[in-house]
Design a protein around this nucleic acid. Structure first.
Lengths: 354, 354
DNA sequence: CTGAAAGCGCTTACAG
DNA sequence: CTGAAAGCGCTTACAG
């Protein structure tokens, strides 16, 4: 009753080569071309019994078509290349997850390339990506970097487009590609409208001027909403800080030190809002009690963290999914924009006032 | 002073084909083989001036080598295929981020494939991945699923290995591959040791029996640590729940309803611990005050969420990086395990007692 | 419906 | 050091 029959041949492991279509064809007794067709679901004109026989043979041999060979034959790989600044950022993770969800049923792989928020790094990465001849490219997250870098990036991407590669963006409406637009402006507008409705009348904004487009859109939405709702934006603190917890802390600290007193502080991301809360506490204010705090993104999605952070759900997974859908449908002569419904989530950091 | 010279030919955009090595060679006045060598940094025996000329030509034409063609020629793609259950989970995101960091300098792409925690889905994905002929495969996160699925998955992976493909795991020590092991056991041991040191004497564990290996390792570490430190594990509630906030809530609720009273409740992930905190509050207990709560993973990494959740930093990014390093170094006859130093982070949910 | 052949864009012995 | 040629594993007109 030994188990020797179960154990494989452990010694002769590596470096055999995978089963090839040629082998499958030979074993099934057909020509290479026939085997190719039999295995291609889109190919008409194959006798049913031949098809079955070839498929069974392929299955039995554990045949897997060589995607690279297929790609060099057809000219492009069944791959969507996604540029993402930092996959640990839940904002990006949600976009990417949505993209993967939409890509898999279409038989497409998603390739992730980190760029660490540095636009010059992105240029390098796009160069690398062009080599892959991916079916499409997708830009995600927020761009930073100066005008020159930006132009260089666009140029590298345009080379890809020039060769017929479709490009889509998921995020801000800042590039001349089809874009699944994160509803920042509408979301910001809805947020301040809601807050006004539950009794907030004066606001301070803390923002980073680094991730410019994202912040600008958010700020524009807040200002529009404030005007409509008849509430005041008393102070805007824009600092050259990253959109991180520490950035939010720094900006809010300065604002509070300057003596501004408002009903609520708004930040352009939840991560920054966490820093705002810390700054408030450091200044002796309890968020949700002495002062309202609201973020943006809704990446925490929870009331379990106390106090629950008010935020705006930007439908990021849908945005990611929709970006892939844009790639999957035929391009139109004019540029397309997919839009989404944001959802305001008021939680413990902004209880109703009065 | 028009800008026509800058604008490209906007009308005739798509479907031209990328510049090919053949074109570069012709333009540079050399043979195809010579161009290939001139562009290959590893290739000796190319006259310096020829190399320079070819490189300049390639640069000027915006040439990018066709990775697929190269891959079909060499037999494998410069790609690490990563299997990940859910990229939105910060645990996975950190592992993947580490992997990307290590892969990029080596000129390797990382391919992400979501599997939604379903092992049968993983089998499908591995089949797909085999087609890519990636340089290596990396398993990440926690496996679930029954014995049969598990065997089928291993079998599919073994086919890949059989063809000479290296496989590495980043996570639990549950597969017969080189593994960068997440230090769960040591981390759990260290956690309870620390807690004992600051005055905690009795504990309850809530766990999921779904993600078995991860939970088992954690539990084993806790039990070992408790024995060494001379503290009591009063109760273990293991429920058939996912390792989520809701899973933690359900298990902790049942435990508390059963009337168990302990100094602290421990959960095998931060996400579950968040649920535990909610359950405690629902039972009228304030975490960090009436009862201690500690998670595991340290995915939140922060004191800013109040009360700050005590946890164990499992060095996940290092684990991810190291997994790739294992792939990049020559394999050894015996299986390798890379290990890491966990770091206990005691925060507000477990203040020192007495 | 099937097969022989050309071609996709590279790499790499092999022979100068 | 360089070039002509074969080969990687597929797909796809083209001619039965």
């Amino acid at each position: 009753m030994t188990r020797d029959d179960v154990a494989g041949d452990a010694t002769s492991s590596a470096s055999r080569s995978p089963v090839t279509l040629r082998v499958v064809a030979r074993e099934a007794g057909v020509a290479l071309a026939t085997a190719s067709r039999a295995l291609d679901p889109r190919s008409r004109y194959v006798a049913e019994d031949v098809r079955r026989r070839v498929r069974e043979t392929a299955e039995r041999l554990g045949y897997r078509p060589n995607a690279s060979a297929r790609a060099t034959s057809t000219g492009s790989a069944p791959t969507i290349a996604v540029l993402v600044s930092d996959i640990r950022d839940p904002y990006n993770a949600k976009l990417v997850h949505g993209a993967i969800e939409a890509a898999q049923p279409a038989g497409l792989m998603v390739t992730i390339n980190g760029t660490e928020h540095v636009i010059d790094d992105e240029i390098r990465v796009v160069r690398m990506l062009r080599s892959q001849r991916p079916m499409a490219m997708m830009l995600t997250g927020t761009r930073t970097g100066n005008m020159a870098s930006r132009t260089a990036l666009l140029q590298e991407i345009e080379r890809y487009q020039h060769d017929g590669g479709p490009v889509v963006a998921a995020g801000d409406d800042e590039f001349p590609f089809d874009t699944a637009v994160v509803p920042r402006r509408a979301g910001a507008r809805a947020l301040i409208t809601e807050l006004a409705r539950v009794g907030y009348a004066s606001f301070a904004l803390v923002a980073s001027d680094v991730a410019s487009v994202a912040t600008r859109e958010w700020e524009a939405g807040v200002v529009e909403g404030a005007r409509q709702a008849g509430v005041r934006i008393d102070h805007v603190t824009t600092m050259r800080v990253p959109m991180t917890r520490d950035g939010g802390f720094a900006a809010a600290s300065r604002m509070l030190r300057d003596g501004h007193r408002v009903d609520a502080i708004l930040a352009p991301s939840d991560t920054m809002a966490i820093g705002v809360m810390s700054a408030a506490r450091a200044a002796g204010l309890t968020p949700g009690q002495d002062i309202g705090v609201a973020g943006f993104d809704d990446v925490f999605e929870t009331d379990d963290i106390t106090p629950g952070l008010s935020s705006v759900d930007l439908a990021l997974e849908k945005v990611g999914r929709s970006a892939v859908d844009l790639l999957l449908t035929a391009p139109t002569p004019e540029r397309r924009r997919a839009t989404f419904e944001p959802r305001v989530a008021l939680r413990a950091t902004t209880p109703a006032r009065r």
